[in-house]
């Protein structure tokens, strides 16, 4: 996985709550292997008008936010399906961080295993940041994972929590399987207790 340390990038506002993973990437694009560039599937339907043309009102379609690498969203961002392709679509389109008051649990896990940092901030802080980036399209946000801070366009600094293990893996770009294999002895000992039976 690509390591994540710090990021200074344009942030796009998606102020709605409950933006689900079906909107982030519609189901009909899920049969593609990871090697396929998923950027074109990102919000494929949500960013288009019923006639198939790009909706000029959709934030990601506007010039100022075309190069955004951070999304700032309403609560329960990326809820719903476990499709990891939701992370791939964001990642392939350049996103490395999502900020919201809460996330779908599985998306958070998927993000941290793919170099896309989910940052939970209080709802009022997220609201304020959204107001700032909406007022100044193209405004940048700084994310510092070692320090666990987000610096909003107005210069205010906000701390965030992150699981120490996930932080370590993201900072180093670690592949968890390799790490888990270093515990082979413990896993094998556990297995010897139960054989093929269910754990009891």
């Amino acid at each position: 996985m690509e390591a994540f340390r710090t990021l200074d990038a344009v942030a796009v506002p998606l102020p709605r709550p409950n933006i689900d993973t079906d909107q982030i990437i519609p189901a009909r694009f899920l049969s593609r292997p990871r090697e396929v560039d998923h950027a074109g599937f990102l919000f494929h339907d949500a960013r288009r008008l019923p006639d198939g043309e790009q909706d000029p009102e959709f934030a990601l379609n506007t010039e100022a936010w075309r190069n955004a690498r951070i999304v700032v969203a309403g609560k329960n961002f990326a809820c719903g399906s476990s499709r990891e392709a939701a992370v791939w679509a964001l990642f392939d389109a350049g996103f490395r961080c999502a900020i919201a008051p809460s996330f779908g649990d599985i998306f958070s896990n998927n993000g941290m295993k793919n170099g896309l940092l989910p940052v939970v901030l209080p709802a009022d802080v997220v609201e304020a940041i959204i107001a700032q980036v909406e007022a100044d399209p193209g405004a940048r946000i700084q994310v510092d994972l070692p320090a666990q801070t987000v610096t909003a366009p107005d210069g205010s600094v906000h701390g965030f929590e992150v699981d120490p293990f996930a932080k370590h893996c993201m900072l180093e770009g670690l592949d968890e399987i390799g790490l888990t294999q270093s515990y082979e002895e413990e896993i094998a000992a556990f297995e010897r207790r139960f054989g093929r039976e269910n754990v009891r």
Binding site: N110, K113, E176, I177, I187
Partner: peptide
């Protein structure tokens, strides 16, 4: 439920 990176992890370990 888990994502596909986690599925790979469970397959392998």
């Amino acid at each position: 439920g888990i994502g596909s990176t986690e599925v790979a992890h469970v397959l392998a370990t």
